[in-house]
Write a protein that binds this DNA or RNA. Structure first.
Lengths: 192, 192
DNA sequence: AGTCATGTAGACAGAGCTGTCTACCTGCTC
DNA sequence: GAGCAGGTAGACAGCTCTGTCTACATGACT
């Protein structure tokens, strides 16, 4: 899945241990809340080793976002294909994510909110990530003149659902509301 | 508007100066990125005065969110009424916000992303804020059996547009995509 | 045998953070 | 005019942060 087990990371090479630890801590606690010292301690590495692989925390943030992008896209494509690869697969696939006990919203949206003004490149990285997400959504839609525009609208709604699932008590409302919205647009079979 | 001029805050009582300064810095730079010392310096107040009014930074964060909620709701209701108070007013009203040079997304979504795990009450505050936003959107819709459900869907789409406007190069795409989405749902007159 | 990349352990500098402290001043109210 | 709420100035404690430093160990390739 999207999260890393704490178990199996201990016998990997140091650089990978650092990245996996950062992946977990940055996503769960936030980036500024996560000090380098904690990443170092939890990846069982020393400071010199850390700084040899990542010359600064900003480098680690970049690597974290790249890694997150790879993993998330892989998961997203797979989760959709497992469910038929059409628009009816979208909400169930997102449900799988939202219901993960470690779900804490979109790493990219969160990072833009936290560092957008301080580290402007995360905005660019996020734009690319969302563009790829939109491309995948495009493939779910039947060919039509307005397919690309529709995909953009669906992607916008998905982002809305992600943030709603993040602050609502349970992800169910976000999923149901997204499903209803898509049904209003006749983009999927009506719910119920 | 939603932002504070730096000019007119200097002759206000200290507590207000602190709150206005925090309002500006927390929103623009993020909360963890903004140290108490900077708030104190920029509000021309001393540390003792600061801590007399706000016993801890967390108290200031709460006050900031409450204040933001008041101001934002006031602005939102007004901007919609100025444009007729129906669904066709929604996108132009948001445009006014998105195009503000200090726009940096939704303060509540950003704060949840930054502190959601560390200060869980911001999640509750955000939930209430978005509920009120949804209530206002409900009033834009004509009475119908599914009005409340529709309003939830629209609110979800608005949140999606807010985050998109935050990381996209210009807010135009977010506005256009939201407008298209609402048009697909026959919730507003088609664009173009 | 020697070199070099890569690892270990841990001290340290310099900065910023939150929050407390002493000591003094001003203006209003009783 | 005494008291007090609320302001001023600024030092300081204790912590955490990022990033650098010295000094040593190990194992692979040449």
């Amino acid at each position: 899945m999207l999260m890393t087990d704490v178990q199996d990371i201990q016998d990997r090479p140091p650089k990978e241990r650092i990245l996996l630890t950062a992946y977990r801590l940055f996503y769960r606690e936030g980036i500024r809340a996560t000090g380098i010292d904690r990443v170092i301690a939890q990846s069982s590495v020393t400071k010199v080793t850390f700084y040899r692989h990542f010359p600064s925390k900003n480098e680690l943030i970049r690597a974290f976002l790249d890694y997150r992008h790879e993993r998330w896209m892989e998961w997203f494509v797979d989760a959709l294909h497992r469910r038929g690869g059409n628009m009816d697969a979208l909400v169930p696939a997102l449900a799988e994510w939202f219901q993960d006990e470690n779900f804490r919203g979109c790493a990219f949206i969160n990072t833009v909110g936290e560092l957008g003004n301080v580290l402007p490149e995360v905005i660019e990285i996020t734009r690319r990530h969302k563009q790829e997400m939109t491309n995948v959504i495009t493939d779910l839609l039947p060919p039509s003149r307005e397919r690309k525009q529709l995909a953009k609208s669906v992607a916008l709604a998905v982002d809305g659902a992600i943030v709603l699932a993040q602050f609502d008590q349970s992800p169910d409302a976000a999923l149901k509301t997204l499903a209803k919205l898509l049904a209003f647009c006749k983009l999927k079979r009506p719910v119920n």
